[in-house]
């Protein structure tokens, strides 16, 4: 068995620009980790934007960011306080 060392999965933080959302639900449907869910609330345009239901599950795959037709959602790498990890880079 190959030893990969002490690999920690990257955690992502999802940012949602609620008022830019038109409620298509592409991100909710295609998030492989079910991080997102459509909310009941309305944004200024009267659409239901998604909300982050389970942030811990996010693995920074950025699929929501790529699929969003409104440029309304994106992901950054979640900083771990103890490691001080930063930046956008991704292995």
């Amino acid at each position: 068995m190959v030893y990969f060392g002490n690999i920690k999965p990257i955690k992502g933080k999802v940012h949602i620009e609620k008022n830019r959302c038109k409620g298509c639900a592409f991100c909710v449907e295609y998030c492989p980790k079910d991080v997102l869910e459509m909310s009941e609330e309305f944004n200024v345009k009267g659409y239901h934007p998604p909300f982050v239901k389970d942030e811990d599950a996010c693995v920074y795959c950025q699929l929501c960011e790529s699929i969003c037709p409104e440029f309304a959602i994106f992901v950054t790498i979640k900083e771990e306080e103890e490691e001080g990890e930063k930046g956008e880079s991704r292995p």
């Binding site: 038109k22 960011e65 790529s66 969003c68 037709p69």
Partner: peptide, 13 residues
């Protein structure tokens, strides 16, 4: 573009 239109997604790509 309408809600659910895919053009925005192609622009992101």
């Amino acid at each position: 573009w309408c809600p659910g239109c895919g053009i925005g997604t192609v622009v992101t790509s």
